[in-house]
Design a protein around this nucleic acid. Structure first.
Lengths: 205, 205
DNA sequence: CACAAAATGACCCGTTCGGGTCATTTACCC
DNA sequence: GGGTAAATGACCCGAACGGGTCATTTTGTG
């Protein structure tokens, strides 16, 4: 029997979700919450197997709610169920600890499958979400940086100094400096650390 | 009609996959390859809609093959179909441009679904793979760094100087310097850029 | 309350970095 | 074949950094 808790501000959605879950073999939903604070408190008392979580909630955001719940219960599985398909929110939710992300038009059969999938160690996502997630691994093609600049940037990301980069690429320190100037201009940054941060965040290397 | 190419060194698997695809409505497979080089060449002539790609191939690795194929055909969808569930290979394949990753015990019906899913903008993954991918977003808990050190590290990742970090956290530059010393010792690094690189790669922040 | 861990602040000094301006050679595209 | 982009190398200088050693205050847990 999989015990599901629901965090969702819309009463109609909340109740129909609970009804769906309670009328499905192997699932039950004894507790629902209208906002995060009570969910965080309630889940501390009565620990479910899975939390279905909305993102656009009154008061504390769902993302922050996920973070707080996972702090106390790292092994609890949280599935986001929301209308938000905005890139930032998806990644924020996953970083906060969600292990699944479904958009709200998901058919009920898929929702039930998703919960079963989570219990088998999966991470169910709606198709567009999965593509966004996988896409986030892909390197930017047609980089604005030249091949040599990328070489230098790669070394930089290993924490190398100008001197070490020069040795490693068999060019003079002055040339390294020159490439760095060009990189800074293109990335619009002004220090090694900022360049590294930008390069890693934007998958330039 | 979805045109599928197969890259797979095992003749039996290759042929049974082709047979499956050709006997399914809406799919066809006219070309199969036993290793990467001929696939790269062949795909340049005869462009399929989807490539099913093995990873453990003789000669060029599947990962490198994916990279080469995506270089020429950035919009071509490549699904990895392999026995490898090793973390590194999964992420390497996705970084190289794969948009799906299935383990070989995947039932044929799921394989066909996966190809349809890809054509609808999805990114089909086996359950364990999806969890690995989502897990890679999650921050390390129980950091070896203190809360304040993480504050400083966060600022560092925005490319701030000591002076700017000091202002932004309302502490003296000397204290920032002190925290940085402690961070360097714990992360075993010796520069801002190296610390940023390590922090971002290890999801410390 | 006592003790430990964390956070705070200060000084010195040699090295590295960032930005400025200079120039030459190689490679590729029209 | 001539022009453009890329890659190479050099110098200067002030600001920023990294490592060293010093000490005080705050916080939290037993």
């Amino acid at each position: 029997m999989i015990n599901v808790a629901i965090v969702e501000d819309d009463k109609d959605i909340r109740e129909s979700l609970a009804l769906l879950i309670n009328s499905t073999d192997g699932f039950m939903c004894t507790t629902t919450y209208g906002e995060c604070m009570s969910a965080i408190k309630g889940i501390n008392e009565d620990i479910p197997d899975i939390v279905l979580m909305d993102i656009g909630l009154p008061g504390m955001s769902g993302v922050e709610g996920i973070r707080r719940i996972k702090e106390k219960h790292p092994d609890l599985d949280i599935i986001v169920l929301t209308v938000h398909e905005n890139d930032d929110i998806v990644f924020e939710a996953l970083c906060a600890g969600a292990c699944g992300y479904l958009v709200k038009e998901t058919p009920t059969s898929r929702l039930l499958d998703a919960m079963r999938e989570v219990k088998h160690g999966g991470a169910p996502m709606s198709t567009q979400i999965a593509r966004m997630v996988v896409g986030s691994f892909q390197k930017k093609t047609e980089s604005l940086l030249t091949a040599r600049e990328i070489d230098v940037l790669n070394q930089l990301c290993k924490g190398k100094s100008y001197r070490m980069i020069a040795d490693s690429l068999s060019i003079s320190e002055e040339t390294v400096r020159r490439h760095l100037k060009s990189i800074y201009r293109k990335l619009e940054v002004h220090s090694k650390s900022e360049a590294v941060a930008k390069a890693l965040k934007e998958n330039l290397i």
